[in-house]
Computed example of a mutant assay.
Amino acid sequence: MTAGTEAPLAGRTALVSGGGSGLGRAVTRALLSDGARVVITGRDERRLRETAAALGPAVTYRVCDVSRPSEVAALARSLADEEISVLVNNAGIAGPVAPLTEISAEDWDEVFGVNVRGVFLMCRAFLPPMTGRGTGDVINIASVSGKRPLLRRTPYCASKMAVIGLTTTLAGEVGPLGVTVNSLSPGPVSGPRMERNFRLEAERTGGSSAEAEAAFVARSALGRMVTEEEVGAAVRAMLRMPGLCGADIDLSAGMVAR
């Protein structure tokens, strides 16, 4: 990292999972603004293709389901000639909104497959070249939901707590080899996913989506949710902090204060 330069990521290539939309697209834009080349991955080829076309020639894409070992291995082989020095594990799914007793084992396993196993598989595939070179940065996108109650969302909350635990332990393993590993825990991010949650909450309570949203953001010090652009900016900031390793950063507009 070369903090304070015009393009601190110039000459570096980043790999962003779940990069075709939402937070992944915002993170990709932020990395591009700091001079990186970016490879985005995801399961939806159409979204990946559209994002790459919209963001320009410094973005390429590969289709990959990060929960599948064979697809992650194929991804690593396809990028063998790329020097991936920044890995952002962003791919994740929200999972069911229901009491634990009504959640199927299949739904539970799907959430952990993407949100936790995917981080494990991507780190396992792309860390060896970084540790071999003695440099690299990994940022895992977790969530404040891994650190506070969020009723009827046990698979998601448990998976994000697992990501934080993976991050802190992995940092101790590869930090001595020159690679930083950190996690970013956004609070609720305004966009389609939260709109879905407010709609489901309104159906459960008999109120409106607007009322569900107002009650939710009232718990935030800033009285709002964070934005996708703010998450991208936080990733940029973390990569400009060379002493940051094994940390989990809250970005919640004051929803969580520790």
Rank of each mutant, 00 (worst) to 15 (best):
A80Q: 10
S78D: 15
G19W: 06
M1I: 13
R224T: 10
G232Q: 04
I103T: 15
E173A: 12
R29P: 13
L170W: 07
P129K: 00
T167C: 02
T41L: 07
G132D: 09
S21P: 09
G178Y: 08
R49Y: 03
A3Y: 10
G134E: 07
V138F: 01
R258A: 13
A76K: 10
S220E: 02
T2M: 08
L244F: 05
R258N: 10
V66S: 03
L177S: 14
V38D: 04
V179A: 09
S190A: 15
N90V: 07
R224Q: 05
L244A: 06
V38L: 10
G18E: 04
E229D: 15
T41N: 09
L32C: 11
S185F: 05
P242H: 04
L100G: 07
T227W: 02
A74C: 08
V27C: 00
L9M: 15
G187S: 11
E229F: 12
V88C: 11
R148Q: 14
F198Q: 00
R37L: 03
E83M: 09
L79S: 04
E173R: 13
R196K: 14
E213W: 04
G35R: 13
L121I: 01
G175L: 14
V88L: 11
N90T: 03
P96G: 06
M130H: 09
M122I: 04
V181N: 00
D34E: 15
L151K: 13
G165W: 07
S145I: 00
T5Y: 00
A98T: 08
V111C: 10
A142Q: 00
A76P: 03
M161E: 12
A80W: 05
D81L: 04
S21M: 11
K147V: 14
